[in-house]
């Protein structure tokens, strides 16, 4: 017997707002991807250390002040990009706020 193909069904909902259900899906996919990368990174480091290309102990050391200062601007830019959206401000001028077309009368 073969399986009939069926149209997809609506996913189960657990949170009051289904948007949370869906964003959790994206979040867990990213978390998985992040772990896969971490794992690969560690494997890469191990291989490089084995071949003598890098010194793992040096990589693990606390960065000195000059290195931290050097990366500060980049760090701040990263945080800016991450957190700026929380303010809810426009990057390019346009109409503000929430809008709806529900009450627009056609032909008016």
């Amino acid at each position: 017997m073969t399986r009939e193909s069926k149209p997809p069904r609506a996913e189960q909902q657990f949170f009051d707002d289904p948007a949370i259900d869906r964003i959790m899906g994206a979040f867990m996919s990213l978390a998985t991807e992040h772990y896969v990368l971490l794992d690969r990174f560690r494997a890469l480091e191990r291989e490089l250390a084995k071949s003598g290309a890098i010194n793992s102990a040096a990589l693990d050391q606390e960065p000195d002040e000059s290195e931290r200062a050097e990366s500060l601007a980049d760090r701040n830019a990263f945080v800016e990009a991450l957190m700026r959206p929380l303010l809810g401000e426009q990057d390019a001028l346009g109409a503000p706020g929430k809008f709806s077309l529900k009450t627009t009368k056609s032909g008016a």
Partner: peptide
């Protein structure tokens, strides 16, 4: 059922299993 804690519990029960079988990995 209406507690946030249980909702996360329930979501994870379904979706950790979904991700084990379906999707990219």
């Amino acid at each position: 059922e209406d507690t946030t804690l249980y909702q996360f519990y329930a979501w994870l029960e379904r979706h950790l299993q979904r991700m084990k079988y379906a999707g990219r990995y």
